[in-house]
């Protein structure tokens, strides 16, 4: 938060014109983001118009459709519809897995970079930041090119004689996972690095003087101290992975559908059920809000 914690005095040179200064941002975000979100919430309770759009008639059909199958004309006895539940569960599992993988690679990297001498540290950090700023679409396309059936990855494995036939990765959940992990890895490294950079190494020294082993120091001293950075990194990977569209779309297929693909299909594809897409968006958004609230609560506890 933009804050005044830590004894800093609150500067108020511009307090008299504060309202005018904040107005443009409130107006723009309020009208073009907050209002559209509220409209989506309303749409999720309306009746669908075929081929896109809505009929202004209250209905819970969009939410009902997630859980129940009532047949083509909606008059059969409801049975549990697993299609969408599966998509949501798959999204959560994929996002969690991507978070764990990014943490496994990202934490040691952030630690290593943060403990370098100032000059080399800047270079390491720069190297990690660059892919962060390269277009996500281009990165995902590059990954697809690399792992295609007859792409360089398979050619290399064939060339080395490690496999006899191309290893089919594209269109599998594994490929989508690889894409998510690859897309959001820098998001994990940077916040952990930021925490680690402020870490006081004498804490480690003190622990070592008291006969703690290296791993005890890591587990009992370093990780608790830089926990805010780790949590922030996990959120920055988990949240965009949960709603990812490019990785499942380009690297996956029909069997690797995630929430993002489902929402896209409702507004762009042939299915064209706006209330259903709006409901899916609202469910995704509430999941994100729960994560962010848990985060805010854990941060409040730390202070």
């Amino acid at each position: 938060m933009a804050g005044t914690i830590g004894g800093r005095t609150v500067s108020s040179t511009y307090a008299p014109v504060r309202g005018w200064l904040l107005l443009p941002s409130w107006a723009v975000i309020g009208v073009f983001l907050l209002l559209p979100m509220l409209l989506m919430l309303v749409y999720s309770f309306l009746t669908k118009e075929f081929r896109g759009g809505v009929i202004w008639e209250f209905s819970l059909a969009a939410y009902d459709q997630f859980i129940f199958d009532r047949g083509l004309f909606g008059d059969e006895a409801p049975s549990i519809e697993w299609t969408y539940i599966t998509i949501f569960v798959r999204s959560i599992v994929q996002a969690l897995l991507a978070t764990v993988l990014c943490l496994l690679i990202g934490f040691p990297t952030a630690y290593y970079v943060a403990t370098r001498p100032a000059r080399t540290r800047a270079l390491w950090l720069f190297l990690i930041t660059i892919p962060y700023w390269v277009n996500l679409l281009i990165r995902t396309v590059s990954m697809k090119f690399l792992i295609r059936d007859n792409g360089p990855f398979n050619e290399a494995l064939l060339g080395l004689g490690l496999i006899d036939a191309p290893f089919q990765l594209v269109n599998t959940n594994l490929a989508v996972q690889l894409g998510l992990f690859y897309s959001y890895l820098p998001f994990m490294v940077l916040p952990i690095y930021a925490s680690m950079e402020r870490y006081n190494a004498s804490l480690s020294e003190a622990a070592a003087d008291l006969y703690a082993t290296r791993w005890q120091i890591l587990r009992r001293v370093i990780i608790p101290v830089i926990k805010p950075g780790i949590v922030a990194g996990c959120i920055l990977v988990f949240v965009p992975s949960l709603g990812a569209f490019l990785a499942p779309d380009l690297l996956g297929g029909a069997k690797t559908f995630m929430i993002g693909s489902l929402i896209e299909e409702q507004f762009k594809g042939n299915a064209g059920n706006w209330p259903f897409g709006a409901a899916a968006s609202m469910i995704l958004l509430s999941m994100v809000l729960v994560v962010l609230m848990l985060y805010a609560r854990s941060q409040a506890k730390e202070l």
Partner: peptide
């Protein structure tokens, strides 16, 4: 409000804006 555009999943921002 200022951080909302980063917090909301991009796909949700996209469809909300379209709608």
């Amino acid at each position: 409000l200022l951080s909302m555009p980063i917090m909301v999943p991009e796909i949700v921002t996209a469809v909300a804006t379209l709608v």
